[in-house]
Every structure is written in structure tokens, then in C-alpha cells.
């Protein structure tokens, strides 16, 4: 049986991989942002998995605190990104950076 920590770690890694792919592959910024959130979640999952020490000690509390802080930070980042994206879409009727669509910047 795979220990749950390892499972969480592997799942996190998978999420990182999927998120990274999406982050790189999509030109549409909203998709890209969503991918980034997947990526971030993967990182947090891995972080959480790293908190597991041993059955006797249980989980380390520090990563949990850090993950919560991280989620707040990511939330703020995403909010700012969405705000900017909305503004871009209003101004240019596009939701992608020009160079990613092959337009001149």
C-alpha cells in the first residue's frame, strides 16, 4: 500500500505537470490563469505531503500554516490577474497577449 503522503505527493506532482502544460500551452489568458491555479494547487499539495513526518509525530504544522498563507497570496495574485484581464478584454476585445497570437506586440 502506498502511504498517503506519497500518494498526495504524487498527485501534487501530477497536478504540477498538468498545470505547467496548460500554463505553457494556452494563449488565452484566462485558461492560462486557470492552469496556473492548477499548478499552484499541485505545489501546495506537494508541500502538504512534505509535512508528513512519521506516524508517531504526525504532520508538521508549519507547512499547513504556510499553505494557507500561500493560498491567500495566490488568491490575491489571481484577483489582480483577473482584473487586468478584464481590463485588457475591454480595451482590446482580446483575451490574449498579442505575441502569443502571432500579432505584433
Amino acid at each position: 500500500m502506498i502511504p498517503s503522503a506519497t500518494l498526495f505527493g504524487l498527485a501534487g506532482a501530477a497536478l504540477v505537470g498538468i498545470g505547467l502544460y496548460g500554463f505553457l500551452a494556452h494563449a488565452h489568458l484566462l485558461r492560462r490563469l486557470l492552469s496556473f491555479n492548477v499548478l499552484g494547487s499541485g505545489v501546495f499539495l506537494m508541500f502538504g505531503a512534505a509535512a508528513w513526518r512519521s506516524p508517531w509525530i504526525g504532520a508538521d504544522a508549519v507547512p499547513h500554516a504556510l499553505i494557507i498563507t500561500g493560498i491567500v497570496v495566490k488568491l490575491a495574485g489571481s484577483a489582480l490577474a483577473i482584473a487586468l484581464l478584464v481590463q485588457l478584454a475591454r480595451a482590446t476585445r482580446r483575451a490574449a497577449l498579442p505575441e502569443d497570437e502571432g500579432r505584433p506586440p
Partner: peptide, 28 residues
């Protein structure tokens, strides 16, 4: 400038996540 900011954002996000990943590994 919004375009520039978003571009900055994309790079910065990648930078952050790489850094965070590194930190998580270090902690692990």
C-alpha cells in the same frame, strides 16, 4: 500598459511558482 502588465504577470507567476516549488522541496 495593461498588456505589458499581464505579460509581466505571466512571467512573474512562473517565477513565483518555481520559487515556491523549490521552497517546498527544501522543506520536504
Amino acid at each position: 500598459s495593461v498588456t505589458a502588465a499581464l505579460r509581466y504577470m505571466v512571467f512573474a507567476l512562473l517565477g513565483s511558482v518555481l520559487f515556491l516549488l523549490g521552497a517546498a522541496l527544501a522543506y520536504a
